[in-house]
């Protein structure tokens, strides 16, 4: 057991203090504890009013994305021994804070939905599954890994500056279907993204690629969508 200080940016819309403020919690942790374990410990044994999202706790559901020591991470994928004995935990940037570490993600999901993130194919379904070669599957393999945690979108300075920007996560999920050989509407998605608030608001800053807990090459995927728009326009 070692002592650790967890500094959390708290905000309570119903409290007396209108402004968000940091609060320190000194607790005992194991080096192999995750930041999520530390937050759970605080919530269960120190201050039950601490509010944050978490669900699977295994890096799959994408609920507990937050800013840990200034970097967007999943609290369930970061070990205490890797962040030191003083950890600052803050909500994701660019979203409205509802309470403590819980942010309003409605706009994020609205932007996600606007790029048609589902298979479109009006042809008659075959008797069994729609077949695809391993090579065709490989083409969009990277972007299938997205868990919609919003770590990429909320690390993007273009998104901080302009909430109308569709954001990296939505483009990643459009990419997943644009390059799927079974899908018949890539043109429709490219048309949606060929917009000032679509892929062209991306300034190739690479924050998204660094922030992704699934190690998706987000900037590369956005670049591929940009090129696909160019090729489509020139044919």
């Amino acid at each position: 057991m070692a002592k650790a200080t967890i500094r959390i940016l708290r905000y309570n819309p119903e409290g007396d203090a209108a402004a968000p403020a940091h609060q320190d919690f000194a607790i005992d942790v194991e080096p192999t504890d995750r930041v999520l374990d530390a937050l759970n410990h605080i919530k269960w044994y120190v201050d039950g009013t601490l509010t944050f999202r978490r669900s699977c706790a295994h890096g799959i559901c994408g609920s507990d994305a937050m800013r840990i020591n200034g970097v967007n991470r999943l609290a369930c994928k970061v070990l205490m021994r890797d962040v030191g004995s003083r950890v600052t935990v803050e909500p994701l940037m660019g979203f409205r804070v509802i309470k403590d570490l819980v942010v309003d993600m409605d706009a994020f999901f609205a932007q996600y939905r606007s790029v048609l993130p589902y298979l479109i194919n009006d042809s008659r379904p075959p008797e069994r599954e729609r077949l695809q070669s391993p090579e065709d599957r490989e083409r969009f393999d990277d972007t299938t890994k997205c868990i919609l945690c919003a770590a990429c979108t909320t690390s993007c300075p273009s998104y901080w500056a302009n909430e109308e920007f569709v954001g990296p996560a939505a483009i990643v999920n459009a990419h997943r279907f644009i390059f799927d050989s079974r899908d018949s509407a890539p043109g429709e998605r490219l048309e949606i993204l060929n917009n000032r608030e679509g892929v062209w608001r991306c300034r190739t800053i690479f924050n998204c690629s660094e922030a992704c807990p699934r190690e998706i090459k987000v900037t590369k995927a956005i670049g591929e969508v940009k090129r696909a728009i160019l090729y489509r326009q020139s044919t």
Binding site: D106, A107, F109, A110, Q111, Y112, R113, S114, E163, E164, V166, I192, N194, N195, R196, E197, G198, Q233
Partner: peptide
């Protein structure tokens, strides 16, 4: 679905689907 203020993006559309950004179409 609530989109950013003043945005048509992602609002539920009557008859299904979601609104896309409405900008001037330009290349």
């Amino acid at each position: 679905v609530i989109a950013p203020a003043g945005s048509a993006r992602g609002q539920a559309r009557r008859g299904g689907g979601y609104e896309q950004p409405q900008g001037r179409r330009s290349n």
